[in-house]
Write a protein that binds this DNA or RNA. Sequence first.
DNA 1: TTGATTGTTACCGG
DNA 2: TCCGGTAACAATCA
Length: 260
Amino acid sequence: MPEGHTIHRAARDHHKKLAGQRLKVFSPQGRFEAGAKILTGKRCRSVEALGKHLLYWFETDDVLHIHLGLFGRIRNRKLPLKEPVGAVRVRLVGRGDCIDINGPTICEVIGAEETEALFDRIGPDVLRADAEPKKAYERINKSRVSIGQLLMDQSVIAGIGNIYRTEILWRQGIHPLTPGKMIDEVTFNLIWEDARTLLALGVKHNAIITVENKKPGRGKYRERVNIFNKMKCPKCKKKIENLEIAGRKAYLCIRCQPLS
DNA sequence: TTGATTGTTACCGG
DNA sequence: TCCGGTAACAATCA
């Protein structure tokens, strides 16, 4: 489910709904009893996103740390409470809102030290104002690893997932197997700016939109993409190839993204 | 029932 | 130390 835009949107939204309130915290599956006990009745100070990590800061520096992994979902609900649907690991209840978090791979309460370690481990997040893109460039510039793989490495650059990886590299005409050290600073800046623009658009519309001038549209189609999981390149009509990079499918147009 | 999936980590071997 | 490969885990939907 999530690339960085999903988490940043959730953080913004949940901050509005919960910050400043004393929360009730439930563990509907019984798999977060200890955490729920620690947090319930405590005041939520703020909610923030760090890459794909979602952090709820409580008074006394407890942090609820969530990572949705591949399958996790967030459901926003209004009071009164209804029965949880599916694998709700934790339910946060404020004055008027209820937030259910389904199937996260990480759901834990951490302290100041562990939170700091998390911030140290995660690379610059394209959606954060405090990001230092230079750090990402330095890692990429020194690496033999392909840019396709580096863009998915959250310790190098945070927020980009499989769809945005494919789409950004296509938009910039870069072959995903280009070694990081072959990416010059100008090219890196283009990647960074494109990632920022696209993820911000994703936050705005709550959908992945990488096609120029596309409107979000309604209904089931939550994505507007160029080549991800597509047959034909919209620019040159050539067949879209796919290959596996670090176990995930990457798509490319070999004409528009030549390997130099 | 099967397969695919907007993710990450641990571990092993070269 | 770096990097590739593999397995494990998570939950839902078509």
